[in-house]
Every structure is written in structure tokens, then in C-alpha cells.
């Protein structure tokens, strides 16, 4: 079950540590991703979570969805708190206060908490080399406060602070490439994943657990509410994002880049944009412009396939 297209549901980890009773919207692929990640990470895990949807929907007393130790911190510092937890555990083990065993420390945040306000804390944690996993659940805008653009919002998407209208075509900047920024820290493992490809995701979380030092996972998290689309299309959209080259699945292991689902023939970008209300205002010329850029980025990635970055 190492490949993205292998389907063997019975091999999927069965125990849930992110359980039912949360308040996520219908069709939320982010919460699905969180559940899958923690199915793999298992019981011996401590999570530091930034402010965001996942905090709000999972932790309001008495409905907590977390069956493992979990701490909510501020918006900008889950990577710093995870660093502290990891260091604290290490000291306690060194001093013999707690038995030495593997406890996985995880920092998590959305795209705003990772790419914008929390980038400094993330960079610090990756540079210091803490033995932790940082997971960015990327739903491409600030959804918790009601759909504001982030630096991870794709070009052309309408949000409440990048509205589409006479003066604006929605988001006017290109999506910030956080996985590559993480990789530039020369950490042992960086990967992109998507809950639309659960087995690929599971394999990547497993790899992230095995490395010594920091691992960074960037997970595509379709948000039907914020993307103005039908909730039942969440998984399909995740697949289209990969098939059109908008969100390629790849990993960088000890510097070596591997595209996990090579797509030499990219699907037309329109297939991906059309079902989403946030792109409804885009005309054909703009879509063509975006497609050019998306495909160029994908070809760039293809040229680096198998190379040590």
C-alpha cells in the first residue's frame, strides 16, 4: 500500500484519535485529513495546534474530538510550542524522569498560521532541527474568520478581502510555495499530500515519523464552504487539483525530489476551477493565464524529478 493508486482499505490504520463529535462543516476535507494523519500517528502523540477552524470545531467543551494530548496556543506559534514540548520531553527523558520512548510531537496549523503569521516560528523550528512533524492543512484562505485571503490563496480566487468585481479579479498574487520554503531548510523530509489520495497520505505520515529531525507535511484541504462549492465534490476536487497540476503530490527525502503521482498529461485547469464558486468570475483569458503558470510550475517540478535539490 505504498503507492497512491493502491486501494487496500483493510490495511488502513483502524484506531481513531481524532473522533466524531466535532463541528466541522459538511464536506470538510481538512478534518478528514486531520483524522487520517492521526490514525497513522497513533496514541503516543502530542499535538500543538494553532488558532483556526480545526481548533474551534474540535475543542469546545464538552465535545472534544481529541483522544490524545492536545494544546491550543496562539495563532503564530504552534511550531514554537511544539519545539518546546519536544525539548521538554527530551530533557525529562535525559534526566530519567520519564522512561525513554518514542513520543511524536506534532505542530499543526492552517495555511494562514503556517504561511503568514506563523512562518517565523516554523522556520525557527525547522532550523533548530527539533524532532517533530509540522503539518500544514492548506485550505487556501482564513476560513475560521470567514474566508479572507492568505498568501496561500491561489491567483484569481475571490475571498472577502480579495473580492472579485470591477476593480479586482480576486486574489492578485500567486500561491506561496511553503513546501519548497520548508525544503530550503535542508530538513530530512518534506511532502505534499491530499486526503483525496489516502494511501499516499498514510505512506507519507509514516515516513515523516521515521525521520530523525523535523518533517514537514503540506496537506491540501478542500473547504466547500470557503470555496463556494458542493460539499459532495470535496474528494473529487482534491483529485482534480492533482490531475491539473494545481497541487502536485511530491516528496523531498533527504533533498531528493520525487513526484509521487506523475501526470505527464495534465487535465485542463478549467475542470478544476469550474465547480468552485470562488473562481466563477474568471474569464477564459485569465484562466488560460493561470493554466500557463500552473503548468510551467509543474514542468519545473518534473525537471527536478529524482534530483537532489
Amino acid at each position: 500500500m505504498e503507492g497512491p493508486n493502491v486501494f487496500a482499505a483493510r490495511l488502513f490504520p483502524q484506531d481513531n484519535f481524532f473522533v466524531s463529535g466535532h463541528r466541522a462543516c459538511q464536506g470538510c476535507a481538512e478534518v478528514l485529513a486531520v483524522r487520517m494523519v492521526h490514525q497513522v500517528l497513533g496514541r503516543n502523540t502530542i499535538v500543538a495546534s494553532a488558532t483556526g477552524c480545526m481548533e474551534i470545531i474540535s475543542s469546545s467543551y464538552p465535545d472534544t474530538a481529541w483522544a490524545i494530548p492536545w494544546i491550543h496556543v496562539a495563532f503564530e506559534n504552534s511550531a514554537a510550542v511544539a519545539s518546546g514540548v519536544e525539548t521538554g520531553l527530551d530533557i525529562l527523558m535525559k534526566k530519567g524522569k520519564i522512561p525513554r520512548r518514542r513520543i511524536q510531537v506534532v505542530g499543526m496549523g492552517g495555511d494562514g498560521a503556517t504561511a503568514d503569521i506563523g512562518l517565523q516560528a516554523l522556520s525557527g523550528a525547522l532550523e533548530r532541527g527539533h524532532n517533530m512533524i509540522y503539518v500544514c492543512y492548506d485550505n487556501e484562505a482564513y476560513m475560521n474568520t470567514g474566508i479572507q485571503r492568505s498568501s496561500s490563496t491561489p491567483f484569481g480566487a475571490a475571498t472577502t478581502t480579495s473580492p472579485a468585481g470591477k476593480q479586482s479579479q480576486g486574489q492578485s498574487t500567486w500561491k506561496k510555495n511553503i513546501p519548497m520554503i520548508a525544503a530550503a531548510h535542508n530538513i530530512p523530509y518534506v511532502a505534499t499530500a491530499s486526503p483525496s489520495y489516502p494511501f499516499d497520505l498514510v505512506a507519507k505520515v509514516k515516513k515523516a515519523m521515521k525521520v530523525k529531525g523535523p518533517a514537514y507535511l503540506h496537506i491540501f484541504s478542500c473547504c466547500p464552504t470557503g470555496w463556494r462549492m458542493k460539499p459532495e465534490l470535496a474528494i473529487a476536487i482534491g483529485r482534480l487539483a492533482v490531475q491539473t497540476g494545481s497541487f502536485p503530490l511530491y516528496e523531498i527525502e533527504n533533498g531528493k525530489l520525487e513526484i509521487n503521482l506523475p501526470t505527464p498529461e495534465l487535465r485542463p485547469l478549467k475542470d478544476y476551477l469550474k465547480p468552485q464558486g470562488r473562481f466563477r468570475h474568471l474569464d477564459d483569458a485569465t484562466i488560460a493565464e493561470i493554466e500557463l503558470r500552473v503548468q510551467a510550475e509543474y514542468r519545473k517540478l518534473e525537471r527536478r524529478q529524482g534530483q537532489v535539490l
Partner: peptide, 21 residues
């Protein structure tokens, strides 16, 4: 210049719409 945060987000949302006009 702003950043979303409840309960002030509505100010910048309206600004984002109105100020270019």
C-alpha cells in the same frame, strides 16, 4: 493594512470592497 480577526474582520471586508472604488 489589516489582518483578519474576529470581531473586527467586517471592517476590513468592507474596506476591501469599498476602498478601490
Amino acid at each position: 493594512f489589516g489582518y483578519p480577526i474576529t470581531p473586527s474582520t467586517e471592517v476590513v471586508e468592507r474596506i476591501a470592497r469599498r476602498i478601490p472604488t
